[in-house]
Simulated scan of single mutants.
Amino acid sequence: MRTGNPSADAPAILRRRPVLVTGGAGFIGSNLADRFASEGHDVLIFDALARPGVERNLEWLKKRHPGKISAVIGDIRDEAAVAEVAGEAQAVFHMAAQVAVTTSLADPREDFEINIRGTLNLLDALRKRNERVPLIFASTNKVYGDLADVELDRTNDAYRPRDPGIRAAGIGEARPLNFHTPYGCSKGAADQYVLDYARSFGIPTCVMRMSCIYGQRQMGTEDQGWVAHFLIRALQGEPITIYGDGCQVRDVLDISDAVNAYAAAWKSIEAVQGCAFNLGGGPSNAISLRQLIRHIEDVIGRSVETVYSDWRAGDQRYYVSDTRLVTRALGLKQPVSWMKGVAALADWLREERGLARAGAASRLQAAEALP
């Protein structure tokens, strides 16, 4: 389905070798577009605007970077539209995706079409150019499956691996792939296509298998973007539903650190082409859902109502990225502390949604005092 005409919507920028960001109106995509436009690049956003609220991100980008941001409203499944926007790009950041496990279970065929066929459309458009155009792909930790074989102990309010190596460093890239749920299959297959196009056709590609990214411009929902979703519900005085026991652990990474990693991958693409990296906050930013809710209560100054429900399909009780490889390969700095980052996101959401800011100054001071 085609919803935009690239030549009509953005004729000038298509001739200026832009940085192409598919899904560029979304959370990570809009932050990437902001970074590259701030550095002086022309940025072309290709997005279907299917996710509620993302049009606000696009409006923000255009106002912030007049003349540097152009957009084509189109569908990644539209082969002709994808070929046209990719035709002059100097680099591609592929963020466009179906992002929810629950949606993939409800409509696995659409999940396939967006995540696999859409990615293949983009890869093949670059292959046919016969140029070395970098493509950096947003993959997921779900390629490793539910990690049910990792033995865990429940300590207080969080699961911890019994294996001291995993406990100290997290899950590494040597972990065998094990796709679960249609979402895991579609993102995993796309992940492998991206890597193989480097091997088979010499396209300089790189894959980021992301854990939980959070931060400004995130329109969190129950199905995706859980840190922002928890904050939104808490700030609005609404209950939070926890699927499982709330002791499941994830490593969370502030969007500023994720953008730094993507930018560094482009800069170092000749060295990292054909590589897949686990990208997350690492062991120092590993938290359980219960621990996040306690911190949110501290940040907003009141208790948060929680409701418990059954575990969801494919949910990992523990996933923490081993970030040693990506840190070494890309020269990344120590990531933002999750406590500081969550407090900053709460302030941004409060301002974005026009919510009361009572006590915000004292909370910000408290966050700044954190190590």
Rank of each mutant, 00 (worst) to 15 (best):
I13L: 15
R17H: 13
L20G: 00
V21A: 00
T22G: 03
R35T: 01
R35A: 10
A37I: 03
E39K: 11
D47M: 05
L49R: 06
R51L: 11
R51E: 10
L61Y: 00
K63V: 10
K68L: 11
K68Y: 06
I73R: 15
R77A: 10
D78S: 11
A81M: 03
V82D: 04
A83G: 15
E84R: 11
E84Y: 02
A89W: 00
A91Q: 12
V92E: 01
H94G: 08
V99H: 11
V99Y: 05
R109V: 15
L122T: 11
L122Q: 09
L123G: 05
A125W: 01
A125L: 03
K128Q: 13
N130C: 12
L135N: 07
A138M: 10
T140A: 09
V143C: 08
D146P: 13
L147A: 15
D149A: 09
E151D: 14
N156F: 12
R167Y: 12
R175T: 15
G184N: 02
A189F: 15
Y193H: 14
L195N: 07
D196K: 13
G202P: 03
I203D: 02
T205Q: 09
C206F: 02
M208P: 04
M210Y: 14
Y214A: 02
Y214F: 14
Q218M: 12
G220C: 09
T221F: 09
L231G: 02
I232T: 14
R233I: 02
A234W: 06
W266M: 07
W266G: 00
E270D: 15
Q273W: 12
G274H: 09
G274F: 03
A276S: 15
A276F: 06
N278M: 11
G280W: 07
S288K: 01
Q291N: 02
V299I: 15
I300F: 07
S303Y: 08
S309V: 02
W311Y: 14
R312M: 10
D315P: 01
D322V: 06
T323D: 09
R328N: 14
L330W: 05
K333G: 12
P335L: 03
A343E: 04
L349F: 08
L355V: 05
A356T: 10
R357A: 11
A358Q: 12
A360I: 01
A361W: 08
A361I: 07
A361D: 14
R363I: 04
A367L: 00
A367Y: 00
